[in-house]
Nucleic acid binder design. Sequence first.
DNA 1: AGAAATTAGTTTACAAGGAAACAGTATTCT
DNA 2: AGAATACTGTTTCCTTGTAAACTAATTTCT
Lengths: 158, 158
Amino acid sequence: MSRMSREDQPVAEVVDLGPLASSLGFLFRMGQIEVFDMFYDTVGRLGLKPGEFSVLWAVHLNPGVRQGAVAETLRIKPAHMTKLIRSFESQGLIARHIPAEDRRGIELRLTDLGEAFVNDNAQAFFSYARQEANRLTPEEAAQLIALLQKFTRLGGTP
Amino acid sequence: MSRMSREDQPVAEVVDLGPLASSLGFLFRMGQIEVFDMFYDTVGRLGLKPGEFSVLWAVHLNPGVRQGAVAETLRIKPAHMTKLIRSFESQGLIARHIPAEDRRGIELRLTDLGEAFVNDNAQAFFSYARQEANRLTPEEAAQLIALLQKFTRLGGTP
DNA sequence: AGAAATTAGTTTACAAGGAAACAGTATTCT
DNA sequence: AGAATACTGTTTCCTTGTAAACTAATTTCT
C-alpha cells in the first residue's frame, strides 16, 4: 500500500523544496494551477476557458474598446490577441469595426450572441471564485485578494 | 500626446474589469506575469528559466528522487517532465539511474556539472524574490506568502 | 503460476502563448 | 508636400506545456 493523503492524491515521496516553497513566483504558479483545476471541475466542462472568457468579459464591460487596450490590460500579447479575436469573430461572438477616424485601431463589440453567452456564463464564471477560496477563511481570502491587487497594481482606485 | 503613466507604460485607454479584478485566478495570472517580468529583468538574461531551475533545485535537495515525484510536487505533467529531464541529461546536468529493485522508476541526481550550476545560480535565483516584492512592505510580503502557502497547501509543516 | 490491474515513464500529435519581422495607417518635422 | 517616425495590428516561426495512447515493469487476485 502506498501512502495516501487523506483527500485524493497518492503521495509517493515527500520532495523537499526548501526556500522554493516560499518564493512568490513559484507560489503564484502553484496557486494558478490549483485554481485552474477547481475551475475545470466546476465550470470548465463546457467551453469556458478563463483566458478567453476574460476577453469577452472585458469587451462586454467596455464596448467599442480597441483590441490593443484589452491586450494591454489583460497582459495578453498582441500576437495572441489577434488569434483570440479572430476566433471569437469566426464564432460570431465579437464584431470588429474599423473606425473612419483612425483606421489603425479596431473597435470591439460583443454581438447579440456574444452578449447572450456572457450573460449566460458570467454567474458561473465568477461564482467558482468563491468556491476556490474555501481553503481560506473569508477574511483570509479578502486579505489575499487585497494583497494581490496591491502587488499587481490592480487595486480599486488607488 | 497619448497619456503616459508616471513610470513606464503608455495607458491608451482605461479598461474596466469589474469583478474580474477581484478574481483569484485572474490575480494569480497577473502576479505570475509580473514576477516573470521582474525575473527576466534581473536574472533571466542568461539561461535561467524559473521552471527549469526549480526542477534542478528539487533534484539538488533530494538526490535520488524519482522523476515522477518531482513532477507531482512541482505539478509538471509527466509528458513535459520527460522532455525536461532528457534535455538536462543531454546537457550533462542530470544523471538518470534505473534501480534494480524497481526498474520502472528512474532515480535522478545532479552531476558535478549540475551541482556546480545550481550552486552558481541559487543565490541569484532566490534573491530576485526579495526584489520582486518591493511593492509590498516586508510584513505584507510575508503575509502574502503565508496565505499563498496555505492556499496551495505548501505551508511549512502544517 | 498466469491473467488482470496498477505504476512509471515515453511517444505522438496538438494547443497555448510569445518574439521578431512586417504592413498599413496616422502624425510630425523639416 | 514629402520624408521620417510612431502606432496598431498581423504573419511566421518557435517554445512551452498538455492530452491520449502506448510500452515496460511490477503487483494483485484468483
